[in-house]
Design a protein around this nucleic acid. Structure first.
Lengths: 113, 113
DNA sequence: TCAATTAGTCAAAAAATTATGACTACCAAG
DNA sequence: CTTGGTAGTCATAATTTTTTGACTAATTGA
């Protein structure tokens, strides 16, 4: 039984991969970024419950995973834009698959914890 | 500016959803389960680094999210099988999208943390 | 009766994630 | 020269997740 049953052989790098997109704010930030470059303050206004620190952490993680790129824009009130990278763009189908689910809960449902 | 700029409107129930499939062991367990019913000890052997408690937690979470179903099999050495539910099956495309990524890291890479 | 296999439970500790609140630095307008 | 907007940092605290190590309980075989 121990030697006979070959058992299922599947590696599990999904853990690592999913980590890139999970956490309290990363999924949201990622999705915003798929719609075009986003700015720090903009994200902050979209996610009023998030603290600056929380957003900074999330953005830095996405950045170091090479999913988003941080660009300082040398304009009037000097701001920062976050863009999806090529790699980031490759992640979009994952989110599309998530959104294709029937049972996608509403924000309210998700909050009822 | 506050009233003018419509900003991007996207809800973010993805956080909730991704949570169902994340954590240290849930992604792996889920993927094993997509290949057919899995038993507790089998998972434990596939993921030798995981503790019983860790696996139990993960399984209970998947169960209470209605992603897997726990079935006690009344046979010789009385065991337990975990099956994907209908809802669980709906999650498969998400994993397929993940696995379709070019940069899927190997276990080794993922472990180099 | 002792040991092994099945599949866990439990309380506590450790580790990882997230939040808090204060502070920084640049630039522009009043 | 003070306020407001940009985008953060920092040390610490609270919370959540995961691990540790001991223990349970039913059944089977020696």
């Amino acid at each position: 039984m121990t030697t006979k049953n070959p058992e299922i052989i599947v590696e599990c790098p999904k853990e690592y991969l999913l980590k890139l997109l999970t956490g309290k704010w990363k999924p949201c930030i990622f999705r915003y970024a798929t719609q075009g470059p986003v700015r720090f303050g903009q994200i902050s206004r979209l996610l009023p419950e998030a603290t600056k620190q929380g957003l900074t952490n999330a953005l830095r993680e996405l950045e170091s995973a090479n999913i988003v790129e941080r660009r300082v824009i040398q304009e009037k009130p000097l701001h920062v834009e976050y863009h999806l990278t090529e790699l980031g763009i490759e992640f979009i189908p994952i989110f599309n698959a998530i959104e294709a689910l029937h049972m996608l809960p509403t924000r309210k449902q998700a909050d009822q914890k």
